[in-house]
């Protein structure tokens, strides 16, 4: 899987690259509009991350260029502009997702995986982890050929873990993904703990081969 990061901020480019390389992606980077356009013209990628504000050009124009060349890349816009206009424009131009800065790395991985999965029309839209099979479309979980009934939040939690295996997921990232923007208070994130306890119990009862460990002070890691 090849990913191109078009981002002018060296620090952010580096950290995204390192994080993605840990996931065994082949990562290439471009630091401005022209080098981005150059790379897009020369190679094919599975997924392209585009920052909107770029030196000597706008990321949205780059997006329009990709669409003009009828390329099949999954495209995710990453922008510090949390402007509704840009989001709508980007998605209208054919972007697969829009992620506003700052984001959690776990969230970025989840978005990339979903975008690539939606692009590859091979019918295999299922996420598999050992004896667990998740269908994001059906929102169903099968453990050892048996259906496991989870509520909406439990499913979201499990999906986030399965799509980010062996990664450290901060409780903030988890809470933002599952409960949205409502969890403003850091101290209150302890409530995530009780939800995970419930999920763990259900998974254990179903004999799922999954281990969700708490990383004290930060969050969780699934393996």
């Amino acid at each position: 899987m090849k990913i191109l990061i078009i981002e002018d901020e060296a620090g952010l480019r580096e950290v995204i690259q390192q994080s993605l390389e840990k996931e065994k992606y082949i990562v290439e980077t471009a630091h401005d509009f022209i080098s981005g356009l150059d790379k897009l013209g020369s190679y094919d990628y599975d997924c392209v991350l585009i920052d909107i504000m770029l030196p000597n050009g706008n990321g949205l124009d780059l997006l329009a260029e990709i669409k003009k060349q009828r390329k099949q890349e999954a495209i995710i816009i990453i922008s510090a502009k949390d402007a509704v206009d840009d989001k709508v424009k980007g998605l209208d131009l054919g972007a697969d997702d829009y992620l506003s800065k700052p984001f959690h790395l776990a969230e970025l991985h989840a978005r990339i995986k979903s975008a690539i999965r939606r692009k590859s029309h091979n019918g295999d839209n299922l996420v598999v982890w050992k004896n667990l099979t998740l269908s994001p479309e059906q929102r169903s979980v099968i453990v050892n050929d048996e259906n496991l009934v989870l509520n909406r939040k439990e499913f979201d939690l499990l999906y986030y873990f399965v799509i980010n295996p062996n990664r450290l997921i901060s409780k903030t990232a988890l809470a933002e993904y599952v409960w949205g923007d409502h969890t403003d208070q850091a101290d209150n994130l302890d409530f995530v703990y009780s939800q995970i306890k419930n999920l763990r119990k259900k998974l254990k009862d179903a004999n799922a081969e999954i281990d969700i460990q708490a990383v004290y002070g930060i969050g969780y890691k699934m393996s």
């Binding site: 952010l12 994080s19 504000m53 510090a80 800065k101 700052p102 984001f103 959690h104 901060s170």
Partner: peptide
């Protein structure tokens, strides 16, 4: 916002990767 969000994003992501 761009100027603030990007350094924040770098700090958070670097810290996540570091941990």
């Amino acid at each position: 916002s761009h100027e603030l969000q990007t350094p924040l994003a770098i700090s958070i992501n670097k810290l996540e990767l570091f941990a």
